Amino acid sequence: MITLKSAREIEAMDRAGDFLASIHIGLREVIKPGVDMWAVEEYVRKRCKEENVLPLQIGVDGAVMDYPYATCCGLNDEVAHAFPRHYILKEGDLLKVDMVLSEPLDKSVLDVSKLNFDNVAEMKTYTQDYKGGLADSCWAYAVGQVSEEVQNLMDVTRECMYIGIEQAKVGNRIGDIGAAIQDYAESRGYGVVRDLVGHGVGPTMHEEPMVPNYGVAGRGLRLKEGMVLTIEPMINTGTWEIDTDMKTGWAHKTLDGGLSCQYEHQFVITKDGPVILTSQGEERTY
């Protein structure tokens, strides 16, 4: 079922989006050559405990295991849903960090600082029943100086996201978003992942409608004021096809070993156009 969000719900998601954006901004100083990738997970956990925010990815249902971390950390050829881990970041790496967080909560209702984030079953009792404001955003980070290939991929992927958001207007259709992203990426020789897509947000992190990064203009669901969506193009240097780590059921990699990049913003469709709720303050906000 697709729901149109109330002003109260949008305000709560905006608060969550502001906090999540501050996390991404803070990670700019964390992600550097020589740093253990696990520092990304530690930074997010620390900020969540300090500011009483639930990391909502912990405990998400999986085919093999529930997701155990606050972040997804995709390195180089990893497309999405890869685990944060102990790996020393190297000059030229491409790291994508994705997360879903609540808005800052009232400590009298729940004291996040007292939760054990490593106890996935316990965390799931809080995260799966959460129905407040939440935000979902992925950002790509260049580790030190990167190659022209990596920089071009990052630039094209980020532009794909904004091109898709530009199409999210009242009266347009879902297919207009995907067609614009696909046309831009493929015209530059890149592959557009089909298996993973954007989506509606609220009251849970994955709601209808699904928002593919490919499609046919003029087709699909008509967009309406009050929809809150994510657009999250996953763009590959080679084939669009991906493979999944069957041991965990989570991490996806490019099938041919090529690089993959992802950017994601969450936004609300208003009568005046899309308004980004996870803006970091420096990019286009419409």
Results as ranks from 00 to 15, higher is better:
D129G: 10
A80F: 08
L101A: 08
F83K: 02
L89T: 04
L134T: 04
G92K: 03
K90R: 11
R85T: 09
Y126I: 04
D98M: 00
K96T: 12
Y126P: 00
Y130T: 07
S108V: 00
F117P: 00
S102V: 13
D77E: 07
V112F: 11
L94C: 10
D106I: 02
L115Y: 04
P84S: 07
E78S: 01
A82T: 09
S102G: 11
Y130A: 06
A80Y: 10
D77G: 03
V120Q: 13
N116Q: 09
P104G: 02
A121Q: 13
S102A: 12
Y130V: 09
M99W: 04
V79L: 13
K107A: 07
H81L: 14
E78Q: 11
V97A: 01
V79H: 11
G92W: 05
M123T: 12
V109S: 08
K124Q: 14
A80Q: 10
L89Y: 08
L101P: 04
D118W: 05
T125A: 12
H86M: 00
N76I: 05
T127W: 08
E91G: 02
L75F: 10
I88Q: 01
L105S: 05
L134P: 05
N116R: 11
L94E: 02
D129P: 03
L134H: 04
V109C: 06
N76G: 04
G132A: 15
L101V: 09
N119K: 15
S137P: 03
L94Y: 05
K131L: 14
D98G: 05
G133T: 15
G133L: 15
D106E: 09
G132C: 15
E91L: 02
L89D: 02
F83E: 05
Q128R: 13
V97F: 00
T125G: 13
F83R: 01
Y126H: 14
L89Q: 07
Y87T: 03
N116H: 11
V120C: 13
E122I: 07
T127M: 06
E91I: 07
A135R: 03
P104T: 04
F117I: 08
H81R: 09
P104F: 04
D98S: 06
V109Q: 08
Y130I: 04
Y87K: 10
D106S: 06
H81D: 14
A82S: 15
L105A: 02
D98R: 00
D136N: 06
L89P: 02
N116G: 04
D93K: 04
N119I: 01
D106R: 08
F117G: 05
Y126R: 05
P104N: 03
A82H: 12
S108M: 06
D118G: 09
Y87R: 10
H86I: 09
L95R: 04
M99S: 13
N116E: 13
H81Q: 10
F117E: 03
D111E: 11
P104V: 01
K124T: 12
Y87M: 10
G133S: 15
T125Q: 12
K114E: 14
Y130M: 09
E122Q: 14
G132N: 14
K107Q: 06
S113D: 07
G92T: 06
V79F: 11
T127A: 10
M99C: 12
S137T: 10
